[in-house]
């Protein structure tokens, strides 16, 4: 082993491949987090209305929580398959989109986002539902009954009341999409087409185990480690100040 100082880091940040992986990660994680948070929030609001049949809806909507990222990827590969996939058929029939999702830009990115959001949503819904149960019923009643201003009240009252949960979920979702999503990408696109869906963790995997570039891969581990330290710090620094419900 030869000590090379910071040369690996220097090489890393001058590598176009790695810069692209960072950009891909930011786009993919950002889009997935926003979609997951908003969809989960609305589904939780609906489930919290306790209309007849809610236990069944809940049970079915929560199922993807128990399904692994690898299987989520497999299921969506099947659904988007140009020959046998039902979702692909739906898109070609109603939107005229007839592509090979897994190998076409930018559809490959959409494909992994579908699978990722589907997989992570139940986790967020569970937490939002728990949070909604802590809000006094009359506040929620008031927001649901008053037709016209219901939207406004949801955004001005309920969403802010749940901000500590949203904050927690954003952090947790960033972690899920940055790391656990590896399996989704590996099963569905293998980082392709080209390196179009290669995120930082996928790049790390390729460099470490496909190309055997241990030095560069270790530097990439350190980068991810630092990202996590920052995320953890942000969570506890801002989270401590904001953990209140009313």
């Amino acid at each position: 082993m030869i000590f090379v100082g910071l040369r690996n880091f220097d090489r890393l940040f001058h590598s176009e491949e790695y810069i692209r992986a960072i950009k891909t990660t930011v786009i993919y994680v950002g889009a997935s987090v926003i979609l997951t948070i908003f969809l989960s929030f609305f589904i939780a609001l609906l489930l919290n209305m306790k209309v007849p049949g809610t236990p069944i809806y809940k049970a079915l909507i929560f199922i993807p929580y128990a399904i692994s990222p690898a299987i989520a990827g497999t299921l969506w590969s099947f659904l988007l398959n140009p020959v046998v996939g039902h979702v692909n058929y739906f898109f070609s029939k109603f939107f005229g989109i007839s592509v090979d999702w897994i190998t076409a830009k930018p559809y490959a990115l959409y494909a992994i986002i579908f699978a990722s959001v589907w997989k992570v949503m139940p986790f967020d819904i569970i937490f939002y539902l728990a949070g909604l149960q802590d809000i006094p019923d009359d506040i929620i009643e008031a927001t649901t009954i008053d037709g016209a201003s219901a939207w406004k009240r949801i955004w001005k009252i309920i969403f802010p009341l749940l901000s500590p949960i949203t904050f927690y979920l954003v952090i947790m979702n960033i972690i899920s999409f940055m790391f656990s999503s590896f399996a989704i990408i590996d099963v569905m696109t293998r980082g392709g087409p080209g390196d179009y869906t290669t995120t930082m963790i996928y790049r790390l995997f390729l460099d470490a185990f496909a190309f055997q570039k241990t030095g560069i891969a270790s530097a990439e581990s350190v980068v991810l480690f630092l990202v996590m330290i920052v995320v953890t710090f942000i969570y506890f620094y801002f989270g401590e100040k904001r953990v209140h419900y009313q």
Partner: peptide, 30 residues
């Protein structure tokens, strides 16, 4: 109004449940 809200929520929830459980259902089917 409450009845209307409940009905709308019911419809929305049925649609969402169908979409979310569709991958699993279609996988079993195929």
């Amino acid at each position: 109004r409450k009845l209307l809200n409940t009905t709308l929520a019911e419809i929305a929830l049925i649609a969402i449940t169908l979409v979310v459980s569709m991958p699993l259902f279609l996988a079993i089917s195929i």
